[in-house]
């Protein structure tokens, strides 16, 4: 049984089809890049994974659970912007990952102290411990996104959804964020979905690259048909196939001597 299963998902707004017949199965720990032209429904797909929208047909299950009706702690998310809370300091933003799941949204006493210590450890890990008491607005774009990812991880989600997380960053920061994300991924073995405009980024980070496009196109009614997954690339080993074939089939090795 696959970890995330998307079964025959359709999405339409009014008489405009956005997605149709989307089927995909994802294993735990896979990094899925989602690419496609603007307006092809990849962000819609991410919003459905997030349970912010419900598909008009079909269902999305995580680990065989019931399809969610609203965003919850199973799904962490990082948007391109506005992912952190501007009125909380960097440390409070991390602590919020634990505190928001309580009745009043705040921790007290020993719990609070422990959460702050965990937050400080995480901030050190993501290289933000020197700005723990500052507000997000005073951080650079890259630091804000690192904070957003750290905050999402604090809630220990089962899947992490990234909606063009590095879209607003400069190329240098973007490369640094790739390294950061790959390290984090190796440590936690998290299942990640990332929507990106950048094909190179998609292939570099992803284990699989899903391409969304419209297979059918009515020139008289562009909204008639929706997009679906047209390609499902295996992007492991830099996208080159058969790199591990000898591990799986040692008998194919040329005879020694």
């Amino acid at each position: 049984m696959s970890f995330v299963s998307v079964t025959d998902v359709w999405q339409r707004y009014g008489d405009r089809s956005i997605l149709e017949r989307v089927n995909v199965a994802v294993n735990e720990g896979e990094f899925i890049s989602i690419v496609g032209a603007s307006g092809c429904g990849k962000s819609t797909f991410l919003r459905m994974l997030l349970a912010e929208e419900r598909p008009s047909r079909g269902e999305i299950r995580i680990d065989g659970g019931e399809p969610a009706v609203e965003p919850n702690r199973e799904r962490g998310v990082v948007f391109q912007r506005y992912s952190v809370f501007p009125h909380l300091t960097v440390r409070q933003n991390i602590v919020a990952g634990e505190a928001f799941d309580t009745t009043w949204g705040a921790l007290s006493g020993a719990n609070r102290k422990a959460a702050r210590e965990r937050a400080d450890a995480l901030l050190k890990r993501i290289g933000l411990n020197h700005v723990a008491d500052q507000y997000p607005a005073s951080l650079s774009g890259g630091m804000q996104q690192r904070l957003a990812i750290g905050q999402a991880m604090t809630a220990k989600p089962r899947v992490l959804l990234l909606d063009e997380p590095f879209g607003a960053l400069d190329p240098g920061t973007r490369l640094a964020m790739h390294v950061f994300l790959m390290e984090l991924k190796a440590e936690t073995n998290m299942t990640v979905f990332m929507v990106t405009h950048d094909l190179e980024e998609g292939f570099k980070l992803g284990d699989r690259v899903l391409v969304f496009d419209k297979p059918r196109w009515d020139p008289h009614d562009p909204g008639a048909y929706g997009a679906t997954i047209t390609y499902d690339f295996d992007a492991k080993d830099g996208g080159m196939p058969y790199q591990r074939i000898l591990d799986n089939y040692p008998s194919l090795a040329p005879e020694a001597g």
């Binding site: 702690r73 809370f85 928001f100 949204g105 999402a152």
Partner: peptide, 21 residues
Amino acid sequence: PHEQIVKAQTLGASSLVIALR
């Protein structure tokens, strides 16, 4: 921004917590 409200939900915040915090 709607993103903030969604983010708070993914951190497990109830309606009350979103309102207060």
